[in-house]
Computed example of a mutant assay.
Amino acid sequence: MDANGEREQLDQVTRRLGARFQHLPADVITHAVTESAAQLAAATIRDFVPLLVEKQAREWLEAQDRY
């Protein structure tokens, strides 16, 4: 996967999480995705990065949602 393809998939992740967590500000969702992606920046196999980012960001947002 090239960088443009990964960026598009991460944009899709942000949109899906935005739809799921509509009551949270958009910048909080973007931050969760950006931070999750940053933690995986050094990953050598990039194919699963968007999936892992979505899982990690969703878990973080769910934890924030409990408070």
Rank of each mutant, 00 (worst) to 15 (best):
G18D: 02
N4S: 12
R7V: 04
E6M: 11
E35G: 14
A3C: 03
R66Y: 05
H31R: 15
H23V: 00
L10A: 06
H31C: 10
Q39K: 12
V33N: 06
R16A: 02
K55I: 04
T34N: 09
R58N: 15
E6Y: 03
A43K: 09
R20F: 03
T14V: 08
T34G: 07
Q9W: 02
R58L: 13
D47N: 11
E54M: 12
V28L: 11
A19W: 04
P25G: 02
A32P: 09
W60G: 09
T30H: 14
E59M: 13
S36K: 06
V49N: 13
G18S: 07
L51D: 15
A19H: 04
E35I: 12
R66S: 07
L61I: 12
A37Y: 02
E6C: 08
V13T: 06
T34E: 09
D47E: 14
A38T: 11
R7F: 03
A41P: 09
D27F: 08
V28F: 07
Q56W: 15
E62K: 12
E59F: 11
D65A: 15
Q39V: 10
L10I: 03
W60D: 11
T14F: 07
D47H: 12
Y67T: 11
V49G: 13
A42C: 03
F21T: 03
E54Y: 10
Y67F: 13
R58V: 12
R7M: 05
L17N: 00
V13M: 09
T14I: 06
Q9L: 08
I29R: 01
N4R: 13
H31I: 07
A41V: 13
P25S: 04
V49K: 14
L17W: 00
L24M: 00
D27H: 09
M1T: 09
L24Y: 00
R58C: 14
L40Y: 07
A43R: 11
E54C: 10
W60V: 10
R15K: 00
G18M: 02
P25T: 01
L52M: 14
E8G: 03
Q12K: 06
V53P: 09
Q56D: 15
P50F: 04
